[in-house]
């Protein structure tokens, strides 16, 4: 079972990230995936997160208690959620936006997701770059399932760009794994 938290700022597509991975797992990887999110009257730009439980078996308790994967795309979100990460957990960050203070056994994967997105033409797809990277460096969801889950989860007119972002992040993640 995986307990994952995607975190960042409102407007970065954080909720959408949890949704796409959840959709990929539960529709195309034949697993169970429950996504929850904190709802509040908070304005765009404040810390936000979506939580995902992925399991081979039916999920009863739907919430994460102590995530072992934390994806962070902002400093504020990192600071807020890092303390709950399991001791031997995995941290996946946008390295230009988060400067982590590492605990001993935490595994860390870094990508300049927002910079890559800007290079590809629009920073709005930073979350897809991050998802490509996430897919490569964690074993939560298959690449194939993600490729199927993205269409229909992002606006049709922006699909090609989103796919490009995803591929860029995925390739970068594969490379990093090889280097390790």
């Amino acid at each position: 079972m995986h307990e994952i938290r995607f975190s960042g700022l409102g407007g970065q597509g954080i909720i959408r990230s949890g949704f796409i991975v959840g959709r990929a797992c539960s529709i195309y990887d034949n697993k169970y995936a429950t996504m929850t999110q904190s709802f509040g009257p908070e304005a765009r730009g404040s810390a936000c997160s979506s939580q995902l439980v992925v399991s081979e078996e039916k999920i009863l308790y739907p919430y994460i208690t102590q995530p072992h994967i934390l994806v962070s795309m902002s400093r504020e979100a990192y600071e807020k959620y890092e303390p709950e990460l399991q001791e031997d957990g995995t941290l996946v960050i946008d390295e230009d936006l988060v400067s982590p203070v590492l605990r001993a056994q935490i595994r860390i994967f870094k990508i300049p997701a927002t910079r890559f997105a800007e290079e590809l033409g629009n920073r709005i797809i930073a979350n897809l770059v991050m998802l490509g990277f996430f897919t490569a460096v964690t074993n939560v969801v298959s690449y194939e399932a993600m490729k199927k889950a993205i269409p229909g989860s992002v606006p049709d007119r922006a699909l090609a760009l989103n796919m490009k972002g995803f591929e860029r992040g995925y390739a970068y993640g594969r490379e990093q794994l090889k280097q390790q």
Partner: peptide, 10 residues
């Protein structure tokens, strides 16, 4: 309830 209403699953 709000939990079930805002929870996403297959």
């Amino acid at each position: 309830d709000e939990c079930v209403g805002h929870m996403t699953e297959r």
